[in-house]
Design a protein around this nucleic acid. Sequence first.
DNA 1: AGGCTCGGTCGCTTCCAATT
DNA 2: AATTGGAAGCGACCGAGCCT
Length: 669
Amino acid sequence: MGEERLYVLGLPAYEHVENRKSTRNTELKRKFSVSPIAREPSNDHMDDICSGVSDLIGVHNENASNCMEANNICNTDDLSGCDNKVNSGEITSESSANSCTDGGVCTSEITREISEHASITGSLKIRFKIHKKSEECRSNTSASEAQVFLNGTHDGISSTNLTLADKHNVDEQRDIERGALPTECVGKSANQDTTSCITGSKRKREALPTERVGKRANQATTSHVTGSKSKREGGGGKRNDSLHKVLFMPIGLADGAYLSYRVKGLIMLKGYKQGNGILCSHCSSVISPSQFEAHAGMAIRKKPYQHIYDANGITLHDLAVSLAEGLDQTNWKNNDDSRLIRADNSEVDYVDPSSKPKKPSVIRLQRTVKKSEIDYSSNCALCSKHDYSVNIFDDRTVIICDQCEKEYHVGCLRGDGRCDLKEIPKDKWFCCHDCDRISVALSECVARGSQVILSSETSKINRKVVNKHSHEGADNEVRWRLLGGKSCPPEHQPLLSKAVYLIRDCFSPITTPNGRDLITLMVHGRNIPGQDFGGMYCVFLTVKATVVSVGLLRILGNEIAELPIVATRKKCQGKGYFLALYSRIEELLCSLKVKKLVLPAADHAKHMWINRLGFSDMSKENLSVCTKMYQLTQFNGTVMLEKQLEQQIDYLEPFSDARSHYNLQLEHV
DNA sequence: AGGCTCGGTCGCTTCCAATT
DNA sequence: AATTGGAAGCGACCGAGCCT
């Protein structure tokens, strides 16, 4: 029933990341004048992959310890204070120059420095060149048109907010930027005869000669005459529109995932995945990848997915390909039979059937499964048999507890006298009173919000701080809170994002076999093939609204809980913050009457858990039993430790002043 | 100097949602 | 249902820099 899952801690492959020895900036310089403080590509790369030290479990990586601090990258400190607040374009300087060629074409060049970009890559000057006939040039419209373009593409102005005439101007300027519109169309107002200009960009393009001049001698000449069109019509490669959509599906990027648009390694624009789009750090609105590219000043490129990178330095295209590899094996998008249904009849997150022969845990995401997709040897927790019904609800239908994630036959539940289900429950279902109780208590704890840590313990932390770091004050208020990753309301998503960045800052990248960032998945309680992190909770310790320590906690019924990842801000390590957080975690578990806590520990951190916190090595037999019953998160290179928790506090008063066994230990840490 | 590589540019297409 | 227009995919070509 259960399963061992091993994730590899280490640097993922970044070979595909732009990392050429020489960066040719000619084209870039032609369009953008980047200030000297703009970062070099290599540093930029390091920003995204930098990782550090976990305070207890993690892997040391000293080399990257401070790179987040050293650069302008948005890091764990305060996401909201990063680029998100960048607003509409504030032009700090402007210059213009006109020149006319012999052909009667005037070039107006307007260079504008947009101050807010300074927060991203240093001040950025964007230069627009508009070629117009001399007569139109004399009418002195180019500057205003450039302003329209500037607003339209960089201030995120929606066309619907403009007058019709304005909209036409914006559209025209965008097409000018694409080189799509003939110059004759520029500057005409809406009530003029502009139809062919506004609506006809495609038609106009069709009129353009397809034959190119200046073809290089060493390039193939056959396509010169036939052009690309004939080649396309020859059926070379069908367009794949669904490839990138997967990124915005439940199995794709998590909301809040950091994204950046890069040109030759330079970050031109940053944003965060949100819903079906990207929350642009420039205009603070959710836009499509294509618009994100346009906001980065590269609308003409038309390859957004090739140039938008995630936090691990992987392009969205590569990420989509990686995801699609799993999807292709199911054809799940078009096959209704492959949709798996939750108890509430909602579709569950994607389940990768490629793993179906491997592990039964693949289908832990849902309560009912269909044999057509997944054939596995899952065992009922009561009868230990793994047969189940397909497509119908009967005694052999498997139902999964929403707390402990154990699986049961409906018939076995009835036979055992636990419950008599007539249909798949619409709401959450728990296999026993304990699971129900724990779920309710956790919900209450989440609803309680942040809570001040006992003053006695706070002073203890501060004493340590004062003793070790006398320059810091001792009056910092230390609070803790619990959030459910999956059920986290939107207003608290930024807090989860902070947790993601904090953990990333402390650990080497932790990825799934197909390259997905496991930290994001776990923090946000996302499901992936072979694993359901929906029951994952995030425990925060904050000091004056700054998250200093984070732990991921999953409670699998009253028998066992796991703490797969903990991390503390580097600046705050060694000050007792994590111990305070762990104290809260242990108190919570004790109050919930959870009997055992297990965690994967790195070798160098093992002694800390054993000597200071009372953990012990998990025997192979114990581990085997646990992994048969539960999905325990394990990482390559770690050992599993366990600790029997004391049962002393009524769950109705889970946070009384009663001190846990751990608090006694804290005195000595 | 010429070939090669690879990022950038560009034209055209398909897809799809919104509008008529 | 037809039309429209935006988004995005595809692939050929361009051109700068590197290598021999």
